[in-house]
Amino acid sequence: MSASDYSSGGKVTKFDKDAYTRLTNFVDAGNADMAPFLKPSGDITLDSTLGTRIMPGSSADWPIVGAVQKKAGDFGDSVHSQLVGQENEWTQYTKALAQAADVFEDCDDLATMTAQDFQSQYPDVGGGVTYSSGGTSSSDSGSSSNNSGTSESST
């Protein structure tokens, strides 16, 4: 966003289709950056085979080597599960964000729309976060904060 998109206090007072397109382009670029990170590469992968790749010595001669290899395999499997979950969530989020672009058929500036209205029309963009007049809460973590969605407009 350019400096002209900000007013007193550094608050965004305009979020039009062009700004939304820049946001989705930024997210898509992040998706391209994340994809190689989430995929296995080389000989060492963060999955259950990690323990077979770690060879600090013979487990027959030193039992702790077997324990390290088992824990490495457990760790790799856990990381792999988390990365697959994150990749799936990211994919769903980017799809939801792209689908929400049609909001500009009815609205020229998202800064004039409440978070509650946007969420009711595009619930998948919120990722499990619900908005109310008192703030936000997450159905995933059970946490809440008082981020009342006040907006300023320039005239």
Rank of each mutant, 00 (worst) to 15 (best):
G135N: 15
S8R: 14
D5P: 02
A19Y: 00
Q82C: 08
L38S: 12
N146M: 06
C107G: 01
S143K: 14
T94M: 00
T130F: 01
Y20L: 05
N31W: 05
R53M: 11
D61G: 08
G66L: 05
M55I: 09
L97F: 02
S132F: 02
T24K: 10
A19R: 08
Y131E: 12
R22I: 11
N147F: 08
D109C: 04
L83H: 06
Y131L: 08
A29C: 06
K14S: 07
V65C: 04
W90K: 07
D28F: 06
P36Q: 05
G51P: 15
F15Q: 01
E105A: 15
S148M: 08
Q82D: 14
K11Y: 11
S143H: 09
T155A: 09
T136F: 06
T45S: 13
D5M: 00
K11A: 09
E89W: 02
E89L: 11
G66S: 04
T52S: 10
T114L: 05
Y93L: 03
D109Y: 06
W90R: 13
S4C: 07
A115Y: 09
K95R: 06
C107P: 03
M34I: 14
T136Q: 10
S153E: 08
G135D: 09
N147K: 11
T94W: 02
P36I: 13
Q119R: 08
Q82S: 10
E105S: 15
Q82K: 11
M113W: 07
A72M: 07
K71C: 02
F37T: 15
V79A: 03
S8Q: 08
G9R: 02
G73I: 07
P63F: 01
Y6E: 13
P63I: 10
G142C: 00
A96W: 05
S58E: 02
Y6N: 13
V79N: 01
V84W: 00
S141N: 13
V12W: 04
Q116P: 03
V103F: 04
T155E: 09
N31I: 15
F118E: 07
G135W: 07
N31L: 04
I44R: 11
C107T: 10
S58R: 01
G76Y: 01
E152L: 12
T91S: 09
S81L: 03
Y131N: 09
M34G: 02
V129N: 07
V103M: 05
G57F: 01
H80N: 09
S139T: 14
T21I: 13
Y131K: 05
S139W: 00
K17A: 11
T94Y: 00
S81D: 06
V27S: 05
I54S: 04
K14T: 14
I44K: 09
M34P: 01
Y6T: 15
S145I: 13
M55N: 15
T94L: 00
I44T: 14
D16S: 07
S58A: 04
G42Y: 02
G134N: 06
S154V: 12
D47I: 12
